[in-house]
Amino acid sequence: MTVNSTNRIDFEVIASLVADGARVLDIGSGDGTLLEILQERRNIDGRGIELSQRGVNECVARGLSVIQGDADHDLVHYPDQSFDYVILSQTIQATHNPKIVLDELLRIGRHAIVSFPNFGYWRVRASLMFKGRMPVTRDLPYSWYDTPNIHFCTMRDFVSLTKEVGATIDRAEALNGAGQKLAVSMPWSLWNLFGQQAVFLLRR
C-alpha cells in the first residue's frame, strides 16, 4: 500500500518519534523497511498491514507480522488504544476516506504518525502554475489517470483535518527535497511552500 516507492526520507523522522519498546502498527508496510528499522533501532513489537501481495510476501519472509489488507477496511477490527503508535506513512493520500482512516488511527493508537507528500510544495504549485499540468515528479511519478494517490492534500489542508477530528498535533516536521528538516521557526505558510514531505505526530 505504500504507493510511492522512492527513497523514504520520512523514515528517519518517524523513527525519531517512536519510543523504545513500543507496540507499533504500520499501515502500508511496503516491503517492511520501516518496521525493520523500528525493530532494530527501537526494539518495537511491530505489526503491519500491506495491500500488495508482493509487499506482504517480502515482509513475511523478513519475519514481520504483516497481513494483507488496507487502511479503508481492516482498521475496524483493532481494539481501542491497542497500540502505542499507529503509523500511516505516505499512504493517507491513497485512501478512499482519509478522515475516517485518521479517526481510526487515533482510536487504535495512543499516538498516530502520519507522513504524506505535501501538495503545497512549490514544485507542485509551479507545475500547475507554469505548465498547467498535474505534477509528475520524481516523488509523485504517476500520471493523473493512473495514480493511486486519489486524495492529495497540502500541509495546511491536513492541519485543518486534524482539527476536524479533534486531534492534537504533538510534533510536526516538514522535510525539503533533500530530506532535511525545515527550521521550526518558519511559519506554516513557508513550511507548506518548501516542505516536500510532512510528518505529523498526533494524539487525541
Binding site: R23, R47, Q53, V56, V60, V66, I67, H77, P79, S82
Partner: peptide, 21 residues
C-alpha cells in the same frame, strides 16, 4: 480466512496473512 485474521488482530496476536492469486 480473513475473519480469523481479524479475530487475531483483535487480540493483538502476531499474525501474517497472504491471499494467494
Amino acid at each position: 480466512n480473513r475473519a480469523i485474521v481479524h479475530a487475531l488482530n483483535a487480540t493483538g496476536a502476531s499474525v501474517s496473512f497472504v491471499e494467494v492469486e
